[in-house]
């Protein structure tokens, strides 16, 4: 009985096509520089979220994944949510990191502007995510800081199939870089919080 339950659980979390698709990708791709085919393997969350937006999700499973994501979020080093906004701005602008064409020894960027408006004076911003201009005015409470830190660390703690990368949980940015990005968002003197030009 236990085996059957387990088998069921495995079948449910991994759609039957997943292994087949993984095999096709393994046959179709090769290691390049420091990027290996190891990256093609999906974790549970990636497998769960590989569906069209319009498709209904299994809410119970979504809640489990959300819970697991939330549990894995650490407190910021030293309990400080806010670093240096000027360093954070550089992280937000930098679109490089972890592509096989990038320098693996250079610090990764957050590429925030690819999807979000931040400094209202910067015209080259993407619209895949919401505008974050004036983010600091949304509040500076402990709850707001914790919410934002969690969102940056692992967005799936709130929105399971969000398209934002897991900047902390996936080791894309360091805790220090995340503290700096936090300051870029919250600091009243940061360009994010200047008035529209």
């Amino acid at each position: 009985m236990k085996t059957i339950t387990l088998l069921f659980a495995v079948m449910f979390s991994n759609p039957l096509y997943a292994d087949e698709v993984y095999e096709v990708l393994l046959d179709s791709m090769v290691d390049k520089n420091f990027v290996t085919v190891e990256r093609l393997k999906q974790d549970e969350l990636q497998a769960f979220c590989s569906k069209p937006r319009s498709e209904k999700v299994d809410e119970a499973r979504a809640a489990e994944l959300r819970e697991a994501a939330l549990e894995g979020v650490p407190s910021p080093p030293g309990g400080n949510y806010l670093g240096d906004w000027q360093r954070g701005e550089k992280v937000a602008i930098n679109g490089k990191g972890l592509q096989y064409s990038d320098d693996p020894n250079a610090a990764n960027g957050g590429n925030c502007y690819a999807c979000h408006q931040l400094d209202p004076a910067e015209a080259a911003y993407g619209t895949l995510g919401p505008s974050l201009s004036g983010y600091g005015a949304r509040g500076q409470s402990a709850a707001m800081l914790k919410y934002t830190w969690t969102k940056l660390w692992n967005t799936h703690a709130y929105n399971v199939c969000s398209h934002m990368p897991r900047f902390g949980a996936a080791d894309i940015l360091t805790p220090q870089q995340l503290q700096d990005v936090m300051a870029f968002l919250f600091d009243p003197t940061s360009p994010v919080n200047r008035s529209q030009p």
Partner: peptide, 14 residues
Amino acid sequence: ETLFYYRAGTHDFS
């Protein structure tokens, strides 16, 4: 179509 939605890698992109 399945590959189009296949999320993987460091950034979870598809």
